[in-house]
């Protein structure tokens, strides 16, 4: 199929950007969305134009590297799929598709469709880990974890950190990302010793970079991993508990 693409082109964080219209020809319905962009870049290169810069890595929906606004929806029209899992059979010959980078104050555009998501790294650094003595790996069953607990923690652990939640949020808030990362560790026994410090430090760091939640649930709708905003409620509860129980500053920062 042949498609018309309106793609955001921007040379750098400070330079002005704008939409440029391209024609891409001979796209297979079996191609993924990113393969379609690869094809466009081949055609642009052959024509002597600069290829469109975009990020990708695993191309199977587990790494969180790719992330594009496709026709105004994070990761495009398919539910519970990253843009690398979107396939061109979702489109018909002659369609026009608008492709933009994530739009959020905390995520400046580096170039074209690539944004700087390092504020997510700052949140993880603030407490998205457990402190364990190094040495031999402990036995897998040394700490029993109930099946229900493991399942619940896994619902948070599936977050790939793509940033779709931030891009979808009218406030540019990172509540869903932070809540998923906190829930993943706070629900497991290994996460308990640092639970209060982790929650307080990660939320405080989040608020330095991002807007705040107003319960629109747009993030939940955009999430390629279908993470529920129930985890945000849990984060709110843990945060209040952490702030009211703690005697002083963060143990993690």
């Amino acid at each position: 199929m042949d498609l018309t693409l309106r793609i955001w082109r921007q040379d750098g964080p400070e330079s002005p950007g704008g939409f440029v219209t391209y024609q891409v020809t001979g796209v297979s319905a079996d191609a993924s969305f990113l393969e379609m962009l690869d094809l466009l870049n081949e055609q642009l290169t052959e024509a002597g134009d600069e290829p469109v810069v975009f990020e990708s890595d695993c191309r199977e929906g587990i790494c969180g590297t790719c992330g594009l606004m496709v026709d105004g929806k994070p990761h495009g029209p398919w539910e519970a799929a990253a843009v690398c899992q979107l396939h061109m059979r979702a489109y018909a010959d002659g369609d026009m598709i608008t492709v933009e980078p994530w739009r959020a104050d905390a995520f400046p555009v580096i170039r074209d469709l690539v944004v700087d998501r390092s504020p997510f790294d700052r949140i993880i650094e603030a407490g998205g880990y457990i402190s364990v003595p190094t040495g031999a790996a402990p036995d897998a069953n040394a700490i029993p974890v109930a099946k229900e607990t493991a399942d619940e923690a896994f619902e948070g652990a599936v977050c790939i950190g793509c940033g779709a939640c931030v891009a979808a949020c009218p406030n540019g808030a990172a509540q869903l990302f932070t809540a998923a990362k906190i829930a993943h560790l706070n629900l497991l026994p290994q996460g308990q010793p640092e639970r209060d410090a982790r929650t307080a430090d990660m939320v405080d760091t989040m608020e330095q970079f991002f807007g705040s939640c107003t319960n629109h649930a747009e993030c939940q709708a955009a999430c390629p991993k279908n993470i529920s905003i129930d985890l945000i409620a849990m984060m709110n509860r843990d945060y209040a508990r952490a702030k009211l129980r703690r005697r002083g500053g963060g143990a993690m920062t």
Partner: peptide
């Protein structure tokens, strides 16, 4: 007061 300083606290 410290809880209230955060946006999450204000939501409470």
């Amino acid at each position: 007061a410290e809880l209230y300083r955060s946006a999450v606290g204000k939501k409470y």
